[in-house]
């Protein structure tokens, strides 16, 4: 589904990604995990076209991305930080995106129910709380029924009920055959949701495989402990 070959990226003198090779399987949930600054957001943003890699190739569903943008029709992205035009409402932003994609798809009522968003639809964004804006991120990411979903710290900023509903939605999407890529610092969420894990240290992939094999190899039951063990195995 998504293949990354020899991906390199530097910011100034700082090497963020060092010859990353990664295969993200279709129909599975893959978590990209690593410490702060390890390059997980840079990988995600490179696939989305937000970051321009120095070297390497990314192929999404058979399309080499380069300066191509049509592949993004298949993608839904939920960013970590939400910010929308202050004076527009949810309905207006949704109609703008529908207009841009020439889509007639309507907002999924299940999302509105799960997040209790009905009363917020007409209000300008400047009046919405941070948590509500995060829910709008979910709404927009799922809006066009995309084949691939990128979720950057998806549960941060959500209350426990919304977070639980959202995790159910992620599972449902996977059941429908969607490919989901997520990053999170909450290891219990990853263990609960993900099938595969790509573990990054210092811009290099240290492990790429199923969570079960990752835990089995380290004789641990908890992902958090297994990751801690891997990090201590690797010289800094």
């Amino acid at each position: 589904m998504i293949s990354i070959f020899d991906l390199e990226k530097k910011f100034g003198k700082l090497e963020i990604l060092k010859k990353i090779n990664l295969e993200i399987a279709e129909g599975k949930i893959t978590a990209i995990v690593g410490s702060n600054g390890s390059g997980k957001s840079t990988i995600m943003k490179s696939i989305l076209g937000l970051v321009k890699p120095d070297r390497g190739e990314i192929v999404v569903d058979g399309i080499t991305i380069n300066d191509n943008y049509s592949y993004r029709e298949k993608i839904g992205y939920m960013p970590q930080i939400a910010r929308y035009p202050d004076n527009l409402s949810i309905i207006e932003v949704v109609s703008m995106l529908k207009d841009l994609r020439n889509s007639e798809l309507e907002i999924n009522p299940e999302i509105l129910d799960a997040f209790n968003l009905y009363s917020e639809l007409e209000k300008p964004f400047r009046t919405l709380s941070g948590g509500t804006k995060q829910k709008v991120n979910v709404l927009i990411a799922f809006l066009f029924n995309p084949k691939i979903l990128f979720l950057d710290e998806p549960t941060s900023g959500l209350d426990p009920v919304s977070s639980s509903n959202f995790k159910d939605m992620i599972r449902n999407e996977k059941e429908k055959g969607k490919t989901i890529v997520l990053t999170s610092h909450i290891m219990s969420d990853i263990q609960e949701l993900a099938d595969d894990i790509a573990f990054l240290i210092d811009g290099k992939i240290k492990f790429n495989g199923t969570i079960d094999s990752f835990l089995f190899d380290r004789r641990e039951e908890s992902l958090e402990r297994a990751i801690a063990r891997l990090m201590t195995e690797v010289p800094a």
């Binding site: 989305l48 592949y71 992205y77 960013p79 939400a82 910010r83 929308y84 035009p85 841009l100």
Partner: peptide, 16 residues
Amino acid sequence: YNSREFMEMMLCQPID
């Protein structure tokens, strides 16, 4: 500067 995150979201849409 204030539109940065919104631009990120827009750049994830199929537009150039």
